[in-house]
Simulated assay, not measured.
Amino acid sequence: MPAGQLRAIKQRKNMHTTDVDPLITMKDVCQLTNLSRASIYRLRNNDAFPAPRRISRGCVRWQLSSVERWIEALPKG
């Protein structure tokens, strides 16, 4: 994951590295993973991607740390 993308997301949301685990949108998840919405939900349905947190009806967010851990766990190469 390019550090610039993560920095841009945090800046857009006025976050700092000292903040407690920020919640990110589907758009942010797609940018960080280079996956489509459909791919993310397909992986999620197979328990192969972190579960989002339901904020309200029709509104979900992912913990940035869980998405970062998922990216770091991907096979290198």
Score class of each variant (00 low, 15 high):
Met1Trp: 12
Met1Asp: 07
Pro2Phe: 09
Pro2Val: 08
Pro2Ser: 12
Arg7Phe: 10
Ala8Val: 07
Ile9Ser: 05
Lys10Met: 14
Gln11Leu: 11
Arg12Phe: 11
Arg12Ser: 14
Lys13Pro: 07
Asn14Lys: 13
His16Thr: 14
Thr18Pro: 07
Asp19Lys: 08
Val20Glu: 15
Asp21Trp: 04
Pro22Gln: 01
Pro22Ser: 06
Pro22Cys: 02
Leu23Gly: 11
Thr25Ile: 06
Thr25Arg: 08
Thr25Asp: 00
Met26Ser: 00
Asp28Phe: 03
Val29Lys: 09
Gln31Trp: 04
Thr33Ile: 05
Leu35Ala: 03
Arg37Pro: 04
Ala38Asn: 07
Ser39Trp: 05
Ile40Phe: 00
Tyr41Thr: 02
Arg42Tyr: 09
Leu43Ala: 01
Arg44Glu: 11
Arg44Asn: 05
Asn45Ala: 10
Asn45Trp: 10
Asn46Val: 06
Asp47Ser: 12
Phe49Thr: 02
Phe49Glu: 06
Pro50His: 05
Ala51Gly: 11
Ala51Trp: 12
Arg54Asp: 06
Ser56Val: 08
Ser56Arg: 13
Arg57Val: 15
Arg57Gln: 11
Arg57Leu: 14
Gly58Asn: 01
Gly58His: 04
Gly58Ser: 11
Cys59Thr: 13
Val60Trp: 07
Arg61Pro: 04
Trp62His: 01
Gln63Lys: 15
Gln63Ile: 12
Leu64His: 05
Leu64Arg: 07
Ser65Gln: 10
Ser65Thr: 11
Ser66Phe: 07
Ser66Tyr: 07
Glu68Phe: 10
Arg69Asp: 15
Ile71Ser: 02
Ile71Trp: 09
Ile71Lys: 03
Ile71Ala: 08
Glu72Cys: 07
Ala73Lys: 11
Ala73Asp: 13
Ala73His: 10
Leu74Ala: 06
Lys76Cys: 13
Gly77Thr: 03
